[in-house]
């Protein structure tokens, strides 16, 4: 069983990663972290200030999803990963976006919520 955490370099994104690790401890599952921020760089576990030891003591792992050269849209990336790796839960940070903003720029969160085949847990910035 794996939990997919959607990271962005924002309070919401960090909060999502933190919550995903908590959930993993509770549900006894692995954590996979996808960087869906605009830069899509490869994350290092060190910068996420999470403690992999807490999980690995139970035989569980924390991993980072390598950047994809194929898929550029954040929502598609999350959905593809979900289908491919049989993800049990997606944890996602939410933030407010105006109607106009959503009209023009769309909303990744909405697409993930509607199209995902597994439960999605959304968290706010605190």
């Amino acid at each position: 069983m794996t939990i997919l955490a959607c990271f962005t370099d924002t309070p919401e994104g960090r909060s999502a990663v933190r919550r995903a690790v908590e959930e993993a401890g509770r549900l006894d599952s692995d954590v996979l972290i996808a960087n869906i921020d605009t830069d899509r760089r490869e994350l290092s576990l060190a910068e996420l200030d999470i403690d992999p030891a807490a999980l690995s003591s139970g035989g569980r792992t924390v991993a980072v999803l390598p950047p994809s050269s194929v898929i550029h849209d954040a929502a598609d990336l999350v959905l593809q990963t979900e289908q491919e790796r049989k993800i049990a839960l997606i944890v996602l940070g939410l933030r407010r976006r105006s109607r106009v903003g959503k009209l023009i720029l769309g909303s990744h969160a909405q697409r993930i919520l509607l199209d995902a085949g597994c439960p999605v847990l959304t968290v706010k910035a605190n």
């Binding site: 194929v70 898929i71 550029h72 849209d73 598609d76 959905l79 593809q80 289908q83 491919e84």
Partner: peptide
């Protein structure tokens, strides 16, 4: 072409095979 590819991925139900 990238727009078209993105569109194809976004509208596909099963995205596993892309790439």
């Amino acid at each position: 072409t990238w727009l078209a590819y993105g569109q194809a991925v976004a509208t596909a139900k099963d995205k596993r095979q892309f790439g």
